[in-house]
């Protein structure tokens, strides 16, 4: 498989030993090719990730990411692809001049017995330290692992069924503003 590492930065976005790392895996009943194709177009990612507002591809290797942060603000950074094996691996990290230090990778491996593809996502970011660090922490929510798992579930549903399950916009009883008291969620 051809490998492209020509944009590898001089030092990693998240220095080893300083980052918070999240690794999640799921099996998707589609070929590595189809899944790779979707993910390689980073502009698709906001469809599956609730905390991404947009990702714009500046060049083949470089992209601009906009994510939701607390109080309806957004945070932005640039990322470059640092490693790519077609239909198998994409790895990216924030550019050295980005204030938001983070890195990620996604790997696609065939699952046994024709069960599709094992998708492993790995994300790394600098944990809370100062204002920006806190923003990043919020970015992934109080339970970042849950958020990443949610995103992977949505990716799987979209790939396997063409839609993402939702109940947003369905009817619900009462005036929610007045009836949703604390005892609402037991």
């Amino acid at each position: 498989m051809p490998t492209r590492t020509n944009h590898l930065p001089a030092r990693p976005a998240v220095r080893s030993g300083t980052g918070k790392k999240i690794v999640k895996a799921c099996t998707i009943n589609k070929s590595p090719e189809e899944l790779f194709r979707f993910w390689r177009r980073f502009e698709n990612l906001p469809r599956i990730s609730r905390h991404l507002v947009s990702v714009t591809e500046i060049s083949d290797m470089k992209s601009h990411w906009v994510a939701r942060s607390p109080a309806d603000n957004t945070v932005e950074w640039d990322a470059v692809i640092i490693n790519e094996h077609p239909n198998n691996l994409i790895a990216w990290e924030s550019t050295p001049d980005s204030e938001i230090k983070n890195a990620g990778s996604v790997r696609f491996e065939p699952a046994p017995a024709g069960q599709g593809t094992e998708v492993t996502v790995s994300l790394e970011y600098v944990p809370p330290a100062g204002k920006l660090g806190a923003m990043i922490a919020k970015l992934y929510g109080e339970e970042p692992e849950l958020q990443v798992e949610d995103d992977l579930n949505r990716f799987k549903a979209l790939m396997e069924t063409g839609e993402i399950p939702t109940t947003e916009g369905q009817p619900v009883g009462g005036d929610q503003k007045t009836t949703r008291r604390k005892r609402g969620a037991k």
Binding site: P171, V172, G173, G174, Q176, T179, R180, R181, R183, G184, A185, K186
Partner: peptide
């Protein structure tokens, strides 16, 4: 668990 008021 996890019922909310107003759920149909």
């Amino acid at each position: 668990p996890s019922m909310k008021e107003g759920d149909i």
